[in-house]
Design a protein around this nucleic acid. Structure first.
Lengths: 396, 396
DNA sequence: ATAAATTCTTGACGAAGTTAATTAATCCTG
DNA sequence: CAGGATTAATTAACTTCGTCAAGAATTTAT
């Protein structure tokens, strides 16, 4: 059901994008403040902000009296109007679809799940369109209108090699897809403007704008779980890799002659610290081939030394991988997250210890944040990419 | 002896820099071709090129008849006039200064060495100024003038943590320096405009413009020798690291529990594959504590198996480090070079083999060049940085 | 009140690059 | 060999974006 083009303020000039993202990511800021932070002239900020205010994306807050250094006209901070437009984000996993509706600040306003019965492209497209229909069925959170009337952009996150510019899934091992033009298929099915992105990179965008990455010009996001991946932001830009591969921290070799990895190598971080690798090893040391993850975690927490060492070994491997990453890139901050980190009480200390030993010189000064990842966060990352499509021109 | 400001065409607009670098790095090109490659309009190229032609930096070649697709006015290729200006590049090592004079294409026209008796800052500055004086004493290669009259820029390469923007050596382990404002000291001593850069990064600039990196938007340069380092270029920009550290491939941990490294870690690439590490290990396996490198190489080449394995082990470690680099950052090309590579017949095969196994998916498709590094090349890198200072505005 | 400080707005100006038309130089064809 | 097709380079008018400098607005300090 194709719909008419969204009525919104076109973001054309670089300055407009700069001003808008500054207000978006750094909360209410006065125009002079935006000017100071971005290097633009205050006149340029005034001009760039006007169309956004007229279109309802930004608003001018009342001056808060006591802010400045004493004398002088008080500032009128610019703020985002989060409810001006809503965005849909969907993460496709092997088993299900996770969808959210967020506002302009990527705050989740509604969410829904949907089991995936098959990986057939047609099936996934229909299921995703249904999910989007469901998400947009209700009224807007502020009750003034219908969600469907105020959401134009859909962000979709998939693991694997994804070409964002063309909206094609080049290769997805989980889904068994090759060269699927998912963005255009979904565009037709939903009538929304679709942006497709690799899942970890999408998460990194969310993190860069609304999470731990705010204000850092370079940072890395590492996700630990079934797979181990990362996204790197250098000078504000995502590293994409000349051949579509980058951020594969899971396949950094850290243990010479270590366990074989499904990638064909040996001693990769993922061969030691992925959920599966940990479980395999836990079964070995416990001598119980039927041990499941929940039990392993419970026993390790209870003090089972051999099992504790399995988790510590995984933490050590992750720490080595982080050291490799940091020594090569020197990011300002590193965030470690993912389902695997849910049990991070068993990892964290060892990660930090190994990292501290192996990080070179002042590279060790980078901020290392280790923190669990709420599951919806993946979908929120997809929504963040949809928000980003307001700025970055892309083909459908 | 401060001199008057150099008389040269100011490169102000982005387009001017783009046009000039395109002609500089991609040989003689017609204006339309420059336009096609850069995305500029041909009118813009005409305008941007004019001041350079007037100032003698570029010239218009006669059309070569048969170039285009048949009909049509033949192109008048633009070409660099390499002898319009000369550049001085000096590399400071622990023992000596290596200096070169190059033309605008970074081709070496003269060179000189100078032993360094002390690491005292004043001494080094004087020695370097003497070296520069010596280099610039003669006539220009084309005989039309004096070198001193046609060289305005000096590039200096030092290993360690260097802040190019401010021209300060923050920390150099080799020289034992901390926070030395070398650029301004040398500026006063020589009267030239000085640009300071980390040695590996300087080499990467030369490689990006005039070497294997030409045309690649992302590539990595790895140097193997006393130390093992690298420089990474992403999206045409050098990665600098938030805390001044980046590209430390020498301290990527590749052998869990491996030999201790002077950085405090274990199993770093440098702890296995640096010249010193190889020699130490060679002495161990041969049982001869006085064995020197030359002998070790000779015997390995002669077929001494234990020694061959020491070199292969070093190659393996380098291969693992390269895999880590490539998996994380997916460059288009990788160049491995350095003094250590002089004996690369003993390394190369193992580097390639390990790399092929551990590089993830299509990341392995990156071009891997392994090649010895002429010693003057370091100084040429410094000169390339000086040439770069024509474009990038920098403080003295 | 008056002065000083600070924010925001406005309009003239300038830099840089685009499009479209023009001129230039060559090949191809009848 | 004239005329058309084709490609290259130049020119001129125009657009876009942002700066600068002046001034209007709104507060505190004296």
């Amino acid at each position: 059901m194709p719909r008419s083009a969204p009525a919104r303020a076109p973001i054309t000039s670089p300055a407009a994008a700069t001003v808008f993202t500054t207000v978006l990511t750094e909360g209410p800021v006065s125009r002079v403040d935006v000017a100071r932070r971005t290097g633009l002239s205050s006149a340029a900020v005034t001009k760039a902000a006007r169309p956004f205010i007229e279109a309802g994306y930004l608003e001018e807050l009342a001056s808060e009296g006591r802010t400045g250094p004493g004398a002088g006209r008080p500032a009128n901070p610019l703020a985002i109007r989060p409810d001006r437009e809503y965005f849909v984000g969907v993460k496709i996993t092997g088993d299900d679809l996770i969808g959210v509706v967020t506002d302009l600040r990527a705050d989740v306003r509604a969410s829904a799940h949907h089991a995936l019965k098959s990986h057939d492209v047609g099936h996934v497209v229909r299921a995703l369109a249904d999910l989007v229909g469901e998400l947009l069925a209700g009224p807007t959170p502020d009750g003034t209108s219908n969600l469907r009337e105020r959401a134009y952009c859909l962000g979709v996150a998939v693991s694997g090699d994804v070409d964002r510019a063309s909206g094609v899934v080049r290769y997805s091992p989980f889904l068994g897809w090759r060269d699927v033009p998912l963005a255009s298929l979904l565009g037709e099915a939903t009538g929304l403007t679709v942006t497709l992105e690799n899942d970890v990179k999408a998460l990194a965008v969310a993190e860069q704008w609304f999470g731990e990455g705010v204000g850092a010009s370079s940072f890395a996001l590492v996700t630990v779980g079934t797979g181990i991946g990362s996204a790197l932001v250098v000078n504000g830009d995502l590293v994409r890799g000349a051949h579509g591969v980058a951020g594969e921290i899971g396949h950094v070799p850290v243990a010479d002659g270590g366990p074989p990895c499904h990638c064909g190598g040996r001693g990769c971080v993922e061969a030691i610290a992925s959920t599966e690798a940990i479980l395999t090893r836990a079964r070995e040391v416990s001598g119980e081939p039927a041990l499941d993850m929940e039990d392993a975690v419970a026993r390790a927490r209870g003090g089972d030394e051999p099992l504790r060492e399995v988790f510590a070994g995984a933490g050590h491997a992750i720490g080595l991988g982080l050291a490799a990453l940091v020594n090569l890139f020197g990011p300002e901050r590193v965030v470690v997250s993912g389902e695997g980190v849910a049990t991070y009480d068993l990892f964290e200390e060892q990660i930090r210890r190994t990292f501290a030993v192996q990080a070179f010189g002042s590279a060790a000064r980078c901020g290392l944040v280790i923190r669990p990842l709420p599951f919806e966060e993946w979908a929120r990352g997809a929504a963040a990419v949809a928000i980003q499509s307001l700025f970055v021109a892309e083909s459908v």
